[in-house]
Design a protein around this nucleic acid. Structure first.
Length: 582
DNA sequence: GCCGTTTTCGGCCCGACTGTTTTCAGTCG
């Protein structure tokens, strides 16, 4: 039995193999399209395969559906095994070098027998690569440099790192007389949890001056490419930044185009074609050679105008993943997405009592300064000894301190006493109910025994959720982006259990976590499960991470009604008591 | 290999940039 993730990887691997074979590019694309279709599929995957419903997905036809079914149900795919046997397994690492695609990898392998990055480096240095047809001295040098860069940097970056440099770049152009419009684009604008590179778009009448100014940006390490309308650089921190320059009237088209996602844009272009139009990064115009009489094209000055012209409500960047947003925009059923200023408080935060860096008072004052109406303190519990988890005595002392401190604040700001209670290996909690009952709420999280099977882990977490004092399930998969894989857990089952038990699920806003993942919130929301956006702040500064949580919540289609942090203090307190009183 | 208001064949997004090329292939987004 294979999982959805394994199937996606299979399809992508097949696409790569077909590329090296030099297969029909459209056939290759069909496999990557099928992988994309599965990525956005949030229903029960094994059931859909078993009931032969997987072929109903857009982009998956009979042939691939049959292959998926064979792979998932027998655990192997004969077609793939044969294909794979034609090439050494290590050859895939060559695709990780920018500048190498299917054609070049094929040439390197067939003509020089190169099948690893190490072999490529040797061949590039001793001159064999430069002698291949289609390669040259410059290509060889670029490959050597790319291999060296790869050694230093991993290739993807957290949203938080991207934000620092995107903000800096926009700042760099602040007040520049030739900038008439500027916006970040790409996956950063869409709020993806990790970012490959930065895209900055500028509208101007003076493209060469803008490119010139871009190249003056101090943190640039080296210039990768520069032309008349775009330039690419590598920043010293390892992030690649691409600047695109367009004319003012082209800006909305270019912004939409470079924001993506690719899949979203493909559908938009399809809609344009239905009207006899062509949509690209510069314009919406009549499709040359279209047999249709094109509809008249309305004037377009903003992205919103563009969506309207295509018969759609404006789609916020975070939703542009071809995850159902276009159908919803057509019917006028897009959600009114949550915004940062809708948040009135937050729940999961630490103090110096466990592993935080600031005191209770400092955290409270910072939250009050931020304009929040309440701050929940949830320090670690005793089993998390690596984080100086609180025992019963120190926890109850903290509850007392919170009561005292609350007297110092006006009625418009309150601290809530909670705990981030460890879910033990068997699903029991780290404190007995009598202790938990003395708190305003309980966040229950897994912090140890990560290696249980998916079945056991799911059972363990559900058992914890069945405790009536567990208000919120903390970071449901335990992932640390770019550094630790999530533990195995069936989120579809967890969401069902949250619905059944009346447990809130956390959207941990720490940019290293962003857990539960945005791809599951739409499903949770449809089942009536509520979300708590928590920065998991370990310092005063950590409270700022709410910004990332909002981005992820918006990607998950959440509105202020779906997120309990948007409730007024009294309504929120009522909600916190609801499960334990029922 | 997928898909269909162009519907079972014949398309499939396309423009910018680099490097290797005397007019374009490969890669990227």
């Amino acid at each position: 039995m294979k999982t959805k993730e394994q199937t996606i990887e299979l399809l992508e691997t097949i696409a790569r193999l077909l590329e090296i074979k030099g297969e029909n590019p459209f056939k290759i694309r069909a496999y990557t399209n099928a992988a994309r279709a599965l990525e956005t599929f949030s229903d029960n995957f094994p059931a859909a395969v078993a009931e032969n419903r997987i072929g109903e997905l857009d982009g998956i036809g009979d042939a691939i559906a049959k292959k998926i079914s064979e792979y998932v149900q027998t655990g192997a795919l004969e077609y793939f095994e044969k294909l794979q046997a034609e090439f050494p397994e290590t050859i895939f690492e060559l695709f990780e070098i920018p500048g190498l695609g299917g054609k070049k990898v094929k040439a390197l392998y067939e003509q020089l027998g190169i099948k690893t990055i190490a072999e490529l480096e040797v061949a590039a240095k001793d001159g064999r690569v430069a002698e291949l047809a289609g390669f040259g001295a410059k290509t060889a040098t670029n490959l050597i440099q790319a291999i060296e860069r790869r050694r230093k940097h991993s290739g993807r970056f957290l949203l938080s790192d991207a934000k620092i440099w995107s903000d800096e770049l926009v700042e760099h152009f602040q007040g520049h007389p030739d900038v008439s419009q500027i916006s970040p684009g790409g996956s950063f604008r869409r709020g993806r949890e990790t970012i490959g590179d930065l895209d900055i778009l500028i509208a101007t009448k003076q493209p060469e001056r803008i490119i010139e100014h871009f190249l003056q940006f101090e943190p640039i390490d080296r210039v990768l490419a520069r032309g008349e309308t775009k330039a690419s650089v590598l920043l010293k921190c390892g992030i690649q930044a691409d600047l695109r320059v367009v004319a003012n009237h082209e800006f909305p088209f270019a912004l939409g185009y470079f924001t993506g996602s690719k899949e979203h844009n493909v559908v938009l272009r399809g809609r344009a074609l239905q009207n006899g139009w062509t949509l690209n990064e510069y314009r919406l115009g009549p499709e040359p050679g279209s047999k249709k009489v094109p509809k008249p094209i309305p004037e377009i000055q903003t992205e919103a105008d563009l969506y309207r012209a295509l018969g759609l409500a404006y789609i916020p960047p975070e939703l542009r993943e071809n995850h159902g947003e276009i159908e919803a925009a057509e019917k006028g059923e897009l959600p009114n997405l949550i915004e940062l200023q809708n948040l009135r408080g937050t729940f999961h935060n630490h103090t110096s009592e466990s592993d935080g860096h600031n005191t209770l008072r400092e955290m409270a004052e910072a939250a009050n300064q931020l304009g929040l109406e309440y701050l929940g303190i949830a320090d670690h519990s005793k089993s998390s000894f690596q984080a100086h988890g609180l025992d019963e005595k120190s926890l109850l002392r903290q509850v007392e301190q919170i009561r005292e401190l609350n007297k110092a604040f006006d009625a418009d700001f309150q601290i809530l006493s909670g705990i981030e209670c460890d879910i033990l290996r068997d699903g029991q909690l780290d404190f007995p109910d009598e202790v938990l009952a003395q708190l305003d709420y309980v966040v229950a999280s897994v912090h140890a025994s990560f290696t249980l099977s998916e079945k056991e882990m799911t059972k363990r977490i559900i058992r914890a959720m069945e405790n009536r004092f567990v208000t919120i399930l903390g970071h449901p998969t335990g992932r640390l982006l770019l550094s630790r894989e999530p533990y195995q857990v069936d989120l579809v089952e967890i969401i069902k259990a949250a619905q059944a038990t009346g447990t809130v699920i956390e959207l941990n806003a720490n940019p290293r976590r962003l857990d539960m993942d945005w791809r599951y919130w739409k499903l949770a929301k449809e089942q009536g499960v509520r979300c708590a956006i928590n920065p998991d702040a370990h310092s005063v500064r950590g409270l700022q991470d709410l910004w990332f949580g909002i981005k992820a919540a918006r990607k998950g289609w959440l509105t202020r009604e779906d997120v309990i942090n948007c409730l007024r203090l009294t309504d929120m307190q009522k909600l916190l008591r609801k499960k334990r009183d029922s």
